[in-house]
Amino acid sequence: MSNFTVSLSPHVRDEDSTRRIMLRVCLALAPAAVFGVVVFGWRALLVLALSVAAAVCTEWLTQKCLKRPVTISDCSALVTGLLLGLTLPPHAPWYVPVCGSVFAILIAKQVFGGLGGNFVNPALAGRAFLLACWPVQMTSWPAPAFVDAISSATPLADPAFAGSTNALLNAVLGLIPGTIGETCKIALLLGGAYLLLRRVIDWRIPVAYLGSLLLLSYAFGGDGLLAVCTGGVILGAFFMATDYVTSPVTPYGKLLYGLGCGLITFAIRRWGAYPEGVTYAILLMNVASPLIDRACRPHKYGEVKEHA
């Protein structure tokens, strides 16, 4: 009787897999996505569907063409497509989400070896690409449902908005113009809390990011809370900056990285030509991640002196 298999220890494995983690991220994004579709209508749904479909199809096609194993079942392309879609204007024409997803998966991810090999967040790289290609389409904002005022600019660029009485409340509830997924802070925080509770993400990056932006805004005489609750900061802090592959793994590294994201976001918003800086802040910190990790290596057990 020797039908036993052998291998080196350990002989048991945790149930969690990459696929499960990705599906949890999708679940966490669901409230924001549903809210976006409800307030912005069927065109928002179309944008999301196109970006997801294009991302998954591009991953499948590239891997088929390159004769690599097809890994769409790990759901990472699904997450990329969904994230990209949520950062697009609700009425973006069809080619915007499609081209963005193709760029995200093909250029930002597969060219660098696929999942785990990319050095910038694919969804944000796709968004940056779209901002360069179609600046007008990428910055025209329809008003959400339940809101009378028609606004064509993001609240970040509109001084009248910041001065209005219910500005903060509307920003938290999501009754402001913006991309499909970034407006409703309650939905995003719900998803973020779920990811934190399930320990999918670590608290350090979002806390350092949001905290530093909040404090910097106050320090320079702005409204910190409003700064955090407008634009894509919350979506970025919980769902983009925390992307495993492109953010530091070391505990202090995560804090430093979050701090850097906050700093650059603030700098772009205050002194830059763009009203919003989340995309570029995170992309720049993505690139700095390996350096940060190298500087923040934890001390290993046993780096102590002998007892006499």
Partner: peptide
Amino acid sequence: TACIRCGRCLRGCPIHLL
């Protein structure tokens, strides 16, 4: 599958290696 740098190994390591 490919390493996604989730950092769980690092959090679990009792010697604090990567």
